[in-house]
Amino acid sequence: MSTTRKVFRYQTRNVVRSRALIGYALFFLATTLGLVRLGGGVERVLPSLANVVLLAVPLVSLLVATIFLYDGRPFTELLLSQPVGRRSLFAGLYLGLTLPLIGAFLLGVGLPLASSGATQEVPGQAVLLLLSGTLLTAVFTAIGFVVAFTLGDAARGLGAALLLWLVLTVVYDGVVLIASHAFAAYPLERPMLVAMVLNPVDLARVLILIAVDASALLGYTGAVFQDFFGKGWGLVGAAVSLTAWIALPYAWALRRFTRMDF
């Protein structure tokens, strides 16, 4: 465990000092402040912010994770030449990357929101936004680990990361939309919800939808949606699935890492 802590401490220091992380925090700080100042009421700010979070958090988490792993590859190899358990080394690397990113996100979005009074006016919505951003960060750094430990070449790794981001944020929804049109004659509520669960970006979006668009979602006449969005288990289900989404790529990347021949 102490290995984890040491690696974590080193990695955190390394990440926090990087310009990328500071830029990331400043980006959210500027965006949120700008929206709060110019965007009008709380009803307006949170949805706009949600759009930004859903785009930027996966992209940045994915890229930062892969870049740092490729950059730190020699150091990782050096550590591995020491009597160090791979699992604890992996955990240290992961936490050292993820926690600073989460910190930057919470700082950049949370501070201006709290100062604008949004956290008091619509605490539920603000908390859900912060929660979904936090979970998304953890999911996408884990996915970054999968990419970095699967593809040896940094250029190919980064390309794959970008492609993955594009697929999960845009292409996937397009496919779902087209599919839902093609099968419009069938009861689609359950398949649609399953499709949302299979994509972490959509899951995070559903969390935000529950907070922001509940009125519209409850206006839909289907019983499955009524239950899902009306009775609270949609919220719990989405949050739990999104947490499970952290474990899946983490386990995969860990498996690669422990069996990898450096």
């Binding site: 845009v170 779902v176 049109h181 979006r205």
Partner: peptide
């Protein structure tokens, strides 16, 4: 296509 409502706020 009402179930498509879950795609609300997606980037697409």
């Amino acid at each position: 296509n009402e179930p498509a409502l879950v795609l609300q706020r997606s980037f697409l």
